[in-house]
Write a protein that binds this DNA or RNA. Sequence first.
DNA 1: CCTCCACCGGAAAGCCGGGTCA
DNA 2: TGACCCGGCTTTCCGGTGGAGG
Length: 417
Amino acid sequence: MHEKEGDQMNLFEKILSSTSIFKNRDVLRHSYTPEFLPHREEQISQLVELLSPLLKGGAPSNIFIYGKSGTGKTATVKLVMKNLDEVSKKVNETIIVHYLNCEIIDTAYRVLATIARKLGKNVPMTGWPTDQVYEEVKNAIESTGAKMVIVLDEIDKLVKRAEEALYSLTRMNSDLSSPRICLIGISNNLKFKSFLDARILSSLSEEELVFPPYNAEQLEDILKQRAEMAFNDGVLEDGVIQLCAAIAAQEHGDARKALDLLRVSAEIAEREGDNKVRIKHVRKAVKKIETDYMLETVRTLPLQTKILLYSMSLLAESMEKFTTGEVYCVYKKLCSKIGVEALTQRRVSDLISELDSLGIINSVVVSKGRYGRTREIKVDSDIEALKRALEEDYRLQELKKYEDETRKTLKLGIFES
DNA sequence: CCTCCACCGGAAAGCCGGGTCA
DNA sequence: TGACCCGGCTTTCCGGTGGAGG
């Protein structure tokens, strides 16, 4: 019953010897910030330039950074901040750098509280009036005489939930005896500026920095740099990096996607026991990432949309493409089977558009002359995987029973028309 | 060239849960 | 605490439309 020690060793040895592809997997993750960022020299030097008053006794303007996801905004800022932090220790200016992600820290209270804590103040997680925390921060800055750089990553998330946090931060400087705070806002959504109060906006975007998307060659450089650290020599087949770069460039020059693609490709190769990452693994990775994304999206869909999607997957089994009317017909039947109030066709029409923009289905408005104008819908995801994901929802379990029945009536319906 | 199908998609109003303010 | 407001979701209403068939 008790295994010999040797047997267990062998089990682990197998795992050890099979990981010959990766040297360091972590450098391919988004959380990793490299020491050198290819093709961001321009942005880095601009940012350094804008922040330079800090070291010369002045206060820099607030900075607003905009760029699509995966264009290196966060990485650049983190890198510059690290350098700033190091250099501030050499000169006799106390510069406190505070980075916070507004997606996680999303209320005025929490924003101010983390700042206060950074300054060594003891502010409870909850309980104080927000004004009091604000005073605490103000006093702390005043008394330490420190300068502070506050990086607000994903700042667009704050607008919705805690605009007053932004307001209090932007007015902090005028409340102090001398300006000491520099705000750096990062956003990948330029539209968010239109929701912003004009006073905050003008204060926040005194200086603006734009991060353009990477093109294929630039992505290639980034991948090469990381691949060198991530993989053992010679494990990448020729063209693997180029392919990853090209695919990511087609999207919108998203370096994060490119890195994901490379990592997943290598993971697939590893799992297949291949000692090289090949083109075919990249192809598989594309599929896998696509399907994973699809499944994740599907799981979080609201019930009505799930039923709708289920109707579509049933239709997709017997016909390649179908119309809004057909889907609505099936959908209504399914709703009555599980005792759910069906939505109107108008609403369903909007839901179909939403599913289309999520990339789960493909719909085009076409005119069939005499036979009307409608959407032609295709399901271009893996239908089996899609159905399985939908059936995970206990509220859709019932539908499995009616699956065959529905298919039959569905066929009859088609013959009739 | 006109008709007319089977929807599309804009506008507006209703409903509902949650938050705010006096 | 109740009046009020807000934003997301949904319904109601309805004018609009590309093109096969007459």
